[in-house]
Computed example of a mutant assay.
Amino acid sequence: MKTIKVQPWGEDQGEYVLINEEDFDAKFHEPFDEGAQPTDAPKIELGTDSGEEFSDEQLRDAIEAASGQRPHHMTGRAKLIAQFNELNAEAAAE
């Protein structure tokens, strides 16, 4: 029987959970991405941070998390920072 790695769905399950491939349910399970950032990576807090201090990839991730849309991979750093700072200002105002 083949097993696959999925994202944990509860606390204290570790970095990933092994399940039987036949038990995978796309409505419940999310495949574990080996290339994803570690779960202990610093979280970007909107409303408190400046876009200047983050990498382009971190900015894309934060913008996607806040807006639901990932910026195009060719979007320049200045525009990423502007988008992040705009979302940042909106979050700080709430």
Rank of each mutant, 00 (worst) to 15 (best):
T3I: 10
T3W: 03
D40V: 03
E21G: 10
R70H: 02
Q13S: 09
H29P: 05
D56I: 01
P42N: 09
A93M: 08
H72C: 05
K43R: 13
E53G: 13
E11T: 12
R70M: 03
Y16D: 05
L87Q: 06
E30W: 06
A92V: 07
E22G: 11
D49R: 09
F24H: 11
A36Y: 01
N20C: 09
A65F: 02
G47A: 09
Q13E: 15
S55N: 07
A93C: 07
R70F: 01
A36W: 01
L18Y: 10
E52V: 05
E11S: 12
S50Y: 08
A65I: 02
A91E: 11
D40Q: 07
D56W: 00
Q58I: 07
L46D: 06
F24Q: 11
E57L: 09
E90K: 15
I81R: 03
E90D: 14
N85C: 04
P42L: 09
I44C: 03
T3E: 15
I4E: 06
Q13L: 11
I4M: 08
E53P: 00
D49W: 00
K43A: 14
E90W: 03
S67A: 10
Q69P: 00
L59G: 03
A92K: 14
A92R: 11
L80W: 00
I63G: 01
E53M: 11
A26K: 12
Q13A: 12
L46T: 06
D12K: 11
P38H: 10
F84I: 01
V17E: 04
G76D: 14
I81D: 04
T39Q: 14
E45W: 01
E45P: 00
L80C: 07
G14E: 05
E57W: 03
A66T: 10
T75Y: 00
E53R: 14
E34Q: 08
R70G: 04
M1C: 10
P42R: 13
Q58D: 15
S67L: 08
P31D: 12
K43D: 13
S55V: 07
P31T: 11
Q83R: 03
E30S: 13
K5V: 05
A82S: 14
P8D: 08
K5P: 00
A41Y: 08
P42V: 12
D61H: 06
I63W: 01
T3F: 05
L87K: 02
L80A: 07
L18C: 08
M74A: 13
D61S: 10
F28C: 14
A78F: 02
N85T: 06
E86G: 04
E52I: 03
K2T: 15
Q7V: 10
A65S: 13
D40S: 12
A92Y: 05
T3R: 11
T39C: 09
Q69K: 13
K5I: 06
D40H: 11
D33W: 02
Q37Y: 10
E94C: 05
A66F: 07
E30T: 15
E45Y: 02
T75M: 12
F54Q: 03
M74I: 08
E34K: 04
D40R: 04
G14P: 01
Q7T: 10
A41V: 13
I81A: 04
T39K: 14
H29N: 14
D25I: 06
F32N: 07
K27R: 15
D12S: 11
W9A: 14
F24E: 13
H29S: 10
D61I: 08
H29Y: 08
K79T: 15
A82P: 02
F28T: 15
A93Y: 02
E22L: 11
E64H: 09
I63N: 02
P42T: 13
E94A: 14
